[in-house]
Design a protein around this nucleic acid. Structure first.
Length: 272
DNA sequence: GTAAACCTGGCA
DNA sequence: TGCCAGGTTTAC
């Protein structure tokens, strides 16, 4: 599911509804590979009050009043969804964990592919987990982002964009979309780009992420937010998921290739 | 660098 | 039946 706009949308909604609340009850139905199992996890978080939910890159950081932290990553299909109305008693097929805060706030963690994780982390583990990421693209200046990209000189620009240590939070959708908007082919080597091109790309990275966040993310596959709602940015995609469709600028057919081991969409005539 | 691994479901 | 999927890590 998640790249920066989707994770940030989820973060905002989680923070809005659970900051200041105490976890009263936790039920674990199934666990992913990295999800802590059983009574230990339950004991670790029941009774603790959440101070708030933060985000670094695509990682959700749940901070407790007592200074403790739970880290969460949605990976491909992880979802947090609030259950409204009557409390869900029987887990649905891919539900993993229920968190009960109060009579009106029941939160379900589900994950079809089980790549996602939730884990209690010490201060040291939290620091280690979050320290290697590149700058937050919505906060950094374009010049800084351009400079970061330049450091991966021998790689393709697509691979550099997907590298979370270069810039945090970009994934396959927004890498392709930013490259289209900047008119740059995904297969170009970083060191073959001009300074102007890297700067233009940096500006479009910020722009496309901000536009998507304003739409609460992209639901071209199965992403939904914590209210079970779809995002709206799939209506604004120019290349991602549009293989064979006409380019919105030049009408040529959008191509899909493999770059950096990822499906990569681009327009042959608009991207040089 | 590139491939494979984690896991399940959907679609051609 | 086989291939692909928004992510990331680990191994040749």
């Amino acid at each position: 599911m998640p790249e920066l706009p989707e994770v940030e949308t989820v973060r905002r909604q989680l923070h809005e509804r659970i900051a200041g609340k105490t976890i009263r009850e936790v039920s674990i139905f199934k666990t992913g590979r990295e999800t802590p199992v059983g009574s230990k996890f339950v004991q670790a978080i029941v009774g603790r009050r959440l101070k708030g939910v933060e985000r670094r890159a695509k990682v959700l950081v749940f901070r407790f009043d007592d200074g403790g932290v739970m880290l969460g990553h949605l990976k491909m299909t992880g979802k947090f969804v609030f259950v409204t109305g009557s409390r869900r008693v029987t887990p649905e097929k891919h539900d993993r964990i229920f968190f009960v805060f109060d009579s009106k706030t029941h939160l379900v963690w589900s994950d079809v592919r089980k790549f996602g994780y939730l884990k209690i982390a010490t201060a040291g583990e939290t620091l280690a987990a979050l320290s290697h990421y590149g700058p937050e693209p919505l906060e950094a200046k374009p010049a800084e982002l351009a400079e970061r990209l330049k450091r991966k000189s021998s790689r393709t620009i697509k691979a550099a964009l997907l590298d979370q240590t270069v810039i945090a939070g970009i994934g396959n959708i927004y890498a392709d979309e930013a490259l289209f908007r900047a008119g740059i082919r995904p297969t170009r080597k970083v060191n073959k780009l001009t300074d102007d091109e890297r700067l233009l790309l940096a500006k479009h990275i910020k722009k496309v992420l901000a536009q998507s966040l304003a739409q609460k993310g992209t639901s071209s596959n199965d992403y939904i937010d914590t209210e079970g709602e779809k995002g709206g940015f799939q209506n604004f995609l120019r290349v991602y998921g549009r293989e064979g469709d006409p380019c919105r600028t030049c009408k040529n057919s959008i191509k899909k290739i493999l770059t950096a081991q990822r499906g990569t969409h681009y327009c042959v005539s608009c991207q040089k």
